[in-house]
Design a protein around this nucleic acid. Structure first.
Lengths: 319, 319
DNA sequence: TGAGAAAATGTACGCGCGTACATTATTTGC
DNA sequence: GCAAATAATGTACGCGCGTACATTTTCTCA
């Protein structure tokens, strides 16, 4: 086809105001052109930090846009399990990225179906032990290890851990890092120093009830995200703990609030934006290769490094 | 049709594993089933606060889900203007909600087309003077007024204002509120106390350069969002301003960071989640009524009330 | 100028659903 | 038991595009 003709046609199309009908095109090509993003169910979006999602979504969005794909947001229902297969059967999406999946029976089963169905998908920040799923993750074991080693190096010995629910692999990973750090320092982990919140500021605040009484015996706390760390700090203050008796504090995620809190919060930076980008890239590549031998395809399992960002909250208080 | 037959058919469908093809259905009905959400261009999602968007998106999402609509995220290109009309011409969306629109020539024109084309759309948090668009907004003039009146009542007289860019109607509205409050208190607004940031923490931090030198002559600052307020506070501290010389501070949005900062930040709460819900409801209603006489349809213009949340940052320092 | 290649133009069909309407089977009311 | 009402079944078509292929026109080179 000659370039000149091509231009003439395009000009004529513009002349009559022709715009291709995206639906008809999808229908003919049997591709929706949509990249699905499954969001966790979070009442009013408060539980998971907004930071976490906006970063990941931006990363996904930038890649999707570059590849002419549209982002379709899919919200989990409050109760039930998401039927991922149906997204593909009904042709709503060409590929999908799953956020905030929990390691629960129905979920695991649903993803296994997806995987065996040979559909392009990718989990972000969640691993399923014993499965070989496409996952883009950060190295939270290393992140936890660094956080705790940092506290140990700063001279703290009795280090409590306010973790998240263990349906999330990142919770389990951080715990492993915590244990390893203590282990290397020759400290026997004290199970009574382990606490669990749900990543909300409130749950951090509530944890103060259990942590405050132990305070002479705890000199530092590692929290599984910044919101809980800040909530805990506020909770302790509300219970009358004086600044000079505050335990050292290390958070996780290095969200905006880490540098906005007082004292600024030492935290573990997680490359959420990149996680999003990589997951989108991966899923779009799977989509391209979909002609190939499906069973031979290797599963992706990435673990991006994290980075400890030291701020005032974890400096030795004798300084 | 008898209920029994209906069940028999559904059972048979399940039997053979039939799932309707969403694309084919869209094609036949000439409806995409998508609710478009136009996102502002924000490099790495940092400029606009994550809080703002996740709240609005959650609100939109809840309504969309309840009406069996999917959310299609549409990202503005870095440079150009969004061609809203084309979203409808190409049948990508049945309705759309526009976030973060700026009052600029191309934008205004594009929305006017949309409006005159009779398409279901709604702006959130942005008004265009002289146009009669569908808008769901909050009463930022009232919000600004309350913030400043509160400072006046607390005894502050020299009140600076760190506003956002005036391509946003909310910036202009807040300024009007600021002026009215001063006016009522018999204070002549001093133009040299007006500063402009871009809603980022950084820009608040940077504003400290100009505000710090004036400090004896400024006893309070009202900032157009919490991030700038906190950035400013940090910037002043970084410039050696002692806590006892810190101006009183009022932020805006009442985001998470307001209650996480130290001292806790007085702020103006904006019902972002509801803005999202209402915009979605409205747009879906327009969609239903689309058969009706398009030109006679009234434009929506809502202004939800805001609420002042008083915290320590604005208490009189003599207390 | 004529044969062959390249480009342009024309024609037909299917993607899977909704919709409309005609036909046949079943139920209802008297 | 018969006509009318109701339900079930069958048939046809179009939505607007991509794709394949046949046909015609234009270009190229000897």
């Amino acid at each position: 086809m000659k370039e000149e003709t091509r231009q003439r046609v395009l000009a004529a199309a513009r002349q009559v105001g022709y715009t291709p009908n995206a639906i008809a095109r999808s229908f003919a090509t049997r591709r929706s052109g949509h990249l699905g993003v499954v969001m966790p169910y979070v009442p009013k979006a408060r539980l998971f930090s907004a930071y976490y999602f906006s970063e990941i979504l931006s990363g996904i969005g930038s890649r999707a846009q570059a590849n002419k794909y549209d982002l379709l947001m899919l919200f989990r229902e409050p109760g039930g399990t998401m039927d991922y297969m149906n997204l593909f059967r009904s042709r709503k999406v060409d590929a999908c990225i799953i956020l905030g999946a929990k390691d629960e029976l129905g979920e695991r089963e649903a993803i296994r179906e997806l995987d065996q169905g040979g559909h392009p998908y990718c989990l972000i920040n969640q691993r399923f032990d014993g499965e070989n799923f496409h996952v883009v993750d950060a190295d939270h074991a290393e992140g936890g290890y660094r956080a705790v080693r940092h506290l140990l190096q700063a001279g703290y010995r009795r280090i409590a851990f306010l973790n998240g629910p263990d349906v999330y692999s990142n919770s389990r990973d951080r715990l492993a890092g915590y244990r390893r750090a203590l282990d290397e320092a020759g400290i026997t982990p004290d199970e009574s120093l382990l606490f669990e919140g749900n990543f909300s500021r409130k749950s951090g605040h509530a944890a103060a009830e259990f942590i405050a009484p132990l305070l002479p015996g705890i000199d530092a706390v590692f929290a599984a995200n910044d919101r809980m760390a800040i909530g805990l700090s506020q909770g302790l203050r509300a219970r009358g703990v004086k600044p000079e008796h505050m335990p050292a504090l290390v958070g996780y995620d290095d969200s905006d609030s880490a540098e906005m809190s007082d004292p600024p919060l030492t935290s573990v930076r997680v490359p959420f934006y990149q996680l999003g980008e990589l997951a989108a890239s991966h899923v779009l590549r799977l989509l391209e290769e979909q002609g190939g031998p499906a069973d031979r395809r290797e599963r992706m399992h990435l673990q991006l490094p994290t980075e400890l960002v030291v701020r005032a909250s974890s400096l030795n208080r004798t300084m």
